[in-house]
């Protein structure tokens, strides 16, 4: 079986793409929190602030080829994924709670939950999963799952 060498070929593009992606997503999340959430609520502000800072810092590090960029990117993606999955879990549990209270969610509330879920999944679940996969070594070479292992496939 012949394996394509796309990983090696994409080292530079992957680094650039992840760098730009993380930086852009970090800025985007910060703007969303500042511009659309009028009320200040510490748990949300802290969570969004942490994720946005990690993503933006790791993105800048990847673009600037700073030494621990890959490690930082893995941490950022891991935290983003954890937050994203927590939000999805929270949405599902909240919907279940309200369904328990009312016996039915109604079309309006169901649509609202779906809209929020669809807004969250691409940025906070799919993107960090793909990023983690790209940052991870091929075939389990750095598959220890920890953030401290060397990331292959990302140029240093």
């Amino acid at each position: 079986m012949e394996e394509t060498n796309c990983t090696n070929d994409l080292r530079q593009p992957v680094r650039m793409a992840l760098g730009a992606g993380n930086l852009g997503l970090g800025i985007f999340l910060a703007l969303v929190a500042i511009a659309t959430l009028r009320a200040r609520y510490l748990p949300v502000d802290l969570g969004v602030g942490l994720v946005a800072t990690l993503l933006a810092a790791s993105g800048a590090a990847l673009l600037l080829r700073v030494g621990p960029a890959a490690v930082l990117a893995r941490v950022a993606s891991g935290v983003t994924l954890a937050v994203g999955l927590s939000i999805i879990t929270g949405l599902i549990v909240s919907a279940s709670y309200l369904r328990g209270i009312y016996g039915d969610l109604g079309r309006g509330a169901s649509s609202m939950f779906l809209l929020v879920a669809f807004a969250v999944v691409p940025y906070l679940v799919v993107y960090p999963v793909v990023a983690l996969a790209l940052l991870r070594g091929r075939g389990g070479e750095s598959g220890d799952g920890g953030a401290g292992g060397p990331a292959r496939g990302v140029g240093k």
Binding site: E3, T4, V130, L134, R138
Partner: peptide, 18 residues
């Protein structure tokens, strides 16, 4: 015929991810 595999897909299919 040569089978082409996608390293990204392979990584996503790993046991610990599942």
């Amino acid at each position: 015929m040569t089978a082409r595999t996608c390293p990204l897909c392979e990584r996503l299919r790993r046991a610990d991810v599942r």
